[in-house]
Write a protein that binds this DNA or RNA. Sequence first.
DNA 1: AATGAATGAGCGTTCATTCAT
DNA 2: GATGAATGAACGCTCATTCAT
Lengths: 199, 199, 199, 199
Amino acid sequence: MAQPQIVNGMDDSPRGKLLSAAARLFRARGFDRTTVRDIARETGIQSGSLFHHFSSKEDILFTVMMEVIRFNTARLQEAVQGVADPVAQLRGLIRAELQSIVGDTAEAMTVLVYEWRCLAAEHQEQALAARAVYERIWLDTLHAVRDAGGMRADPVIVRRLINGMTSWASNWFDPAGPLDIDGLAEQILHRVIGEPASP
Amino acid sequence: MAQPQIVNGMDDSPRGKLLSAAARLFRARGFDRTTVRDIARETGIQSGSLFHHFSSKEDILFTVMMEVIRFNTARLQEAVQGVADPVAQLRGLIRAELQSIVGDTAEAMTVLVYEWRCLAAEHQEQALAARAVYERIWLDTLHAVRDAGGMRADPVIVRRLINGMTSWASNWFDPAGPLDIDGLAEQILHRVIGEPASP
Amino acid sequence: MAQPQIVNGMDDSPRGKLLSAAARLFRARGFDRTTVRDIARETGIQSGSLFHHFSSKEDILFTVMMEVIRFNTARLQEAVQGVADPVAQLRGLIRAELQSIVGDTAEAMTVLVYEWRCLAAEHQEQALAARAVYERIWLDTLHAVRDAGGMRADPVIVRRLINGMTSWASNWFDPAGPLDIDGLAEQILHRVIGEPASP
Amino acid sequence: MAQPQIVNGMDDSPRGKLLSAAARLFRARGFDRTTVRDIARETGIQSGSLFHHFSSKEDILFTVMMEVIRFNTARLQEAVQGVADPVAQLRGLIRAELQSIVGDTAEAMTVLVYEWRCLAAEHQEQALAARAVYERIWLDTLHAVRDAGGMRADPVIVRRLINGMTSWASNWFDPAGPLDIDGLAEQILHRVIGEPASP
DNA sequence: AATGAATGAGCGTTCATTCAT
DNA sequence: GATGAATGAACGCTCATTCAT
């Protein structure tokens, strides 16, 4: 049922297992309804041992969020690297973001959206700074698409609409359903650059 | 700062004041981080008295959600009633949903999305049933738009993409900014039926 | 075994019973080794109920200390009021302080000395300010004794020596032993003004 | 700032450094508020290694106390050895005890007084037995003073009053202040044998 | 001897809920 | 209806101690 977590820090070490279990539980129950005993039990350790790896429950949340932001920023960068055509870049970004949200990092990404306010204020700031790098990539590509005549709308607004479409997919998208991630990406792309003329 | 709550049940009665305060607090802090004492204090009663009006804290959440679903379903119905043109209907629905999400019922709508998992299972079922009526209106209109040739995509998918765009607006839309609700609605409409040829 | 606590706030109310029990336990085991469950059990309430009366365990300690400081300051004032002879005043002060330390407020006074560092910094400040009133009375009387020729030593030093003698009594004085409080007071007085010529 | 610890066992060995650090920390924070990790960190070892030197945290406390009792008993013996005049002996004892309490062994002596109840019962017994040797020296000298006509009061009571005056000095005496240890010793001596006639 | 991850009982505190008044 | 003291289970977290390496 759970997607395997492929984020770098979530390996087989106790710390990695803790992060994976936490991401899964935070998503399933929410941060506040997940107890440190739950996380420890899932990881096969005692609750006190958890605090050898993280200074607090909130620190686990912060680490999950930072890891997933960094991992997906790297994925975004790979998606545009070496791609010349702005529309092809945009397609790559949409696919990458969907992959984040409904694919391999689905749990951590959902946590990022839904448990944001459980982060301490100073951690919010740090996460926001990391997130800004991610958004920069999007805006650069969207500007390129517009400059190339692929769309007329304001890139900032368009980014937000795309973000809504991709984020919301976590609420309904079924990877086992008839529509796969690339198909959904194409649908979203059409909302931005219009549908191609029918065959 | 807080939007006035105009949902029917949120009137000047103790019960109504309790619901308004709860919606505001649930949005600001989350359900789990809002205590019944917080809600009672904001309403000017003692925490014990709250249980004369609601059987539990979760019951307050459920009531907030049901009220906002019903209120906005009625708003949706008004938006399509007597409108013949499917595209005009769709514009009305988008405006109505945006009004729900970033306008007068913003708090309760945000709670509906973010605190869903705090609902007891049987309450989730009831709320889902009420929500189905709401979604029926959307799908009927989207089918009409497609049948009239206004778009080619699958209405079910399109509805989900629209829902994402409108819901996400709660995270960024600023009613005091340069873009008003109708302007944003137009942007979203263009994602569905394409942009008009430029002037 | 336990001395009855006669400090004003330590009455039959839940709050008063809590303070008495806390003073007794803090003395017997120390603040850190006394749990809130211990205090609650002794008072016949549940541990959670304790926090309706005090905001924290440390708040109980602070309250015990402030009550005993104020109570014994009042006792000191009574001891000198209307007494003209400085030596008689001094005798009254010594008796009063001994009464505090080994008599009716023995537990709270011992706690005041031994658990001082368990007070939060801002509470230490407040307690110190209250204590200053107490010490003022002592110094006024000791100055009077010196000015009247009753002793030659520095009143500040003498006060500290007396304070040591009285405080230390909590470690050895047995009210059931051959020496009563007044007898001990006389011994201490002689350390200050010298022993009378033998009969 | 910290006085150098000169007690025999507190040398440069890991064990000695552990004892010194423990004495300092126990005084500064109290036994219960000092963690074995604190002690280990100050000594430059890991917390687990501490248990190669002491069987428990309480064992460290016990060792600190026993070392300081033995060290200061030896100092007391030196102070009276070869001194014929009982008053001179008494002066030596007072100076020696003050040196213990506010001088080179200040930290361990304060711990001895304030953390007594943190000792296990059987360790209290052993420490009490060692302390009895110390007190014997005091009583022998005080009896000699009385027999020589230097005072009239009961030696047992006088010892307790002196003990109070010296112990309490840890709360106020400032070695950098105008009064030095010998000056304070003289003040205490005068409380016992009376002040000399003024010049 | 030294390490440091792991333990697990126990801590102070919170808070939805109850109920006598 | 309203009160507010009381409940008690559950929480995040601490820390002396153990032990495989």
